[in-house]
Design a protein around this nucleic acid. Sequence first.
DNA 1: TTTGCTATGTATAACAG
DNA 2: TCTGTTATACATAGCAA
Lengths: 172, 172
Amino acid sequence: MVRGKTEIKRIDNDVSRRMSFVKRRAGLLKKANELAVLCDVDLGVLVFSDHGAGAGQPSDYCSPHTSWSELIQRYETITNVQLQDTYDDEDEDADDQMFMFKEIVGLRRERDRLQASLRRQTGEDLPSGATKEELDTLDQQLELALAKVRERKDKLMDQQLDESYHKVTVIL
Amino acid sequence: MVRGKTEIKRIDNDVSRRMSFVKRRAGLLKKANELAVLCDVDLGVLVFSDHGAGAGQPSDYCSPHTSWSELIQRYETITNVQLQDTYDDEDEDADDQMFMFKEIVGLRRERDRLQASLRRQTGEDLPSGATKEELDTLDQQLELALAKVRERKDKLMDQQLDESYHKVTVIL
DNA sequence: TTTGCTATGTATAACAG
DNA sequence: TCTGTTATACATAGCAA
């Protein structure tokens, strides 16, 4: 933050504001991940790119071992505040049913989307029209995942070696 | 962050972990506010203090001019694609409601399971108690996926080379 | 436990290509 | 618009009281 303290007010310049947005959003999501992992807590971050009824995809982070739906449910339970809008018209029953119906439709779609992602991620079902860029991205993701798995395996082996070593010293 | 780089893994010491949690949570919420104000965007942060079904009140931040319910609604609207299916407004009885309710519960569970699989598959969230066998299986799956992606890339390259070749022959 | 300090690592505003 | 660099502000781990 060069040149004096950063005053916390809307950045007027469009270019600067967008640049700041991209950088700070990345920073926020990174911090969120660090907090979740270091302190072993559940949390979620949800960021929309433009504050109108915007077009852009939101970014979000959800800590390991949980999910947005779970976070929201817990929040509701604890605060006793209803976060998800329920329809509040004259005919409550019909509106409840409408809500549930939409929920089911949405959930089925999301399930399908997730299943497709999973199939793609396991190479079972690569999109036939995939471009080189898409394949490269997937390749990188898989390499990264593989590196993480192997790092974990190495740690596990080291741990076991260490245990064996201790056993040996005890025996000796 | 005195004494060497901070490795991003669970802090084992209880006292240190709680201290870090309080400090980092404050930092995260502050950053969230700065991002919302400086860049004029909508966002929310939700943090639970302990990751069990815990007792602690959650902390949250929600950007000015919006609310959690609005954020969640927008997120669902955008993420779930369109909810264009028609809703049958006939009288539905309690059995139907029960059915729908069970369907929702089941679908949410499945979604969570799929999200977890996906995170595991991308190495984002390897189960902490994973055995060597599990890790080996995952390793093999990833290798397989990588091989398929690369095979596809090779085909794509060959195809493009082939096209170039034909162009050349036509020109000649 | 909570508060405050400080050395050091990190995030990022401004700029350049 | 995106990417990389750098100087500076900011966040925070480890202590101490």
